[in-house]
């Protein structure tokens, strides 16, 4: 009997995601008021993101978490601390 083992994607920093890639925000290791601000802006755990631009300036469209598709720009410093679980294309 064959056992199916689902391999869950490992969360990666947002800066490692490429343009057009989607993912689920798992954790943001940003403490203090900056972390609270990101949550209030819609970057909450388990929200779905689409990377619109990666690099020094990282732009993400928050597909769930805002209720529509707000876009948030993050400096590399912040984007490095946002851990995202990539979603396979087509899902």
């Amino acid at each position: 009997m064959t056992e199916h083992v689902e391999i869950k994607p490992v969360p990666v920093p947002l800066t490692r995601m490429t343009r057009g890639q989607r993912g689920v925000l798992r954790e943001a290791t940003i403490e203090g008021s900056d972390g609270e601000m990101l949550v209030a802006m819609g970057l909450r755990p388990n929200c779905r993101l689409r990377v619109c631009r990666s690099g020094q300036t990282c732009i993400v469209a928050v597909e769930t978490g805002c209720g529509g598709g707000c876009r948030i720009g993050l400096s590399r410093h912040l984007a490095d601390r946002v851990m995202v679980e990539p979603i396979a294309a087509g899902r």
């Binding site: 209030a40 802006m41 819609g42 769930t64 978490g65 805002c66 209720g67 529509g68 598709g69 707000c70």
Partner: peptide
């Protein structure tokens, strides 16, 4: 804002 209602609802 109806386009980002979920986030607006927290406020």
């Amino acid at each position: 804002d109806a386009t980002n209602l979920l986030r607006n609802l927290s406020l």
